[in-house]
């Protein structure tokens, strides 16, 4: 056997094993990808909600992506309470204006998912504790949100997330 013959043999053997390796890795792709959200789950990623029945000071819980969304009709007092806060003192500095749609500052739409570990904060349902800042209070680990749903106290790192939304009309909001 010449040296060149040996090299050619080695090359073929290495190529064969490499092909097997590449094939095995490629087969992993569908096995991993199947766990990602399926087409029907992705298709339900926007929802339209009628907000005509929510009086000032009230809130409802809607569902978007199988998670609660708080839709709150702020009273003028709550708006001014939120606007009075010095943004630079906040843990996650954001103004109420930035968190709402221009001209519809009274509609505060946030995820009902505490940014700490994902519990549903209290304060949107009738008679629920709103916490010392008049917004939301998460009973799991004691995070307190203000009337703009900004984190004010407790372990949560961020304000309640504002989902992408737009007003289809004065009474219907589309989330997602």
């Amino acid at each position: 056997m010449t040296g060149e013959g040996v090299r050619r043999r080695d090359f073929i053997n290495i190529a064969a094993v490499s092909f097997a390796g590449v094939g095995g890795l490629a087969a992993l792709y569908p096995l991993i990808s199947q766990m990602a959200p399926s087409a029907d789950v992705l298709a339900e990623s926007s929802t339209e909600i009628d907000i005509s029945a929510i009086a000032p000071g009230q809130a409802i819980k809607a569902v978007w992506r199988k998670q609660p969304v708080f839709i709150r009709n702020l009273t003028p007092e709550e708006i001014s309470a939120a606007e009075k806060v010095d943004v630079s003192t906040l843990r996650d500095p954001e103004t109420l204006e930035k968190r709402t749609t221009a001209g519809k500052t009274n509609w505060l739409i946030t995820m009902g998912v505490c940014t700490h570990l994902g519990c549903v904060p209290l304060g949107a349902g009738e008679g629920e504790v709103k916490g010392e800042f008049g917004g939301y209070f998460c009973p799991c680990h004691g995070s307190v949100y203000d009337t703009a749903a900004r984190i004010r106290k407790g372990p949560a790192p961020k304000n309640l997330e504002v989902p992408p939304h737009e007003f289809s009309s004065d009474t219907v909001v589309k989330i997602g």
């Binding site: 569908p30 990602a36 399926s38």
Partner: peptide, 13 residues
């Protein structure tokens, strides 16, 4: 049928 239509690569699996 959900597997066949909606799950990623479900038809192949």
């Amino acid at each position: 049928e959900h597997i066949m239509r909606d799950v990623n690569w479900g038809w192949m699996l």
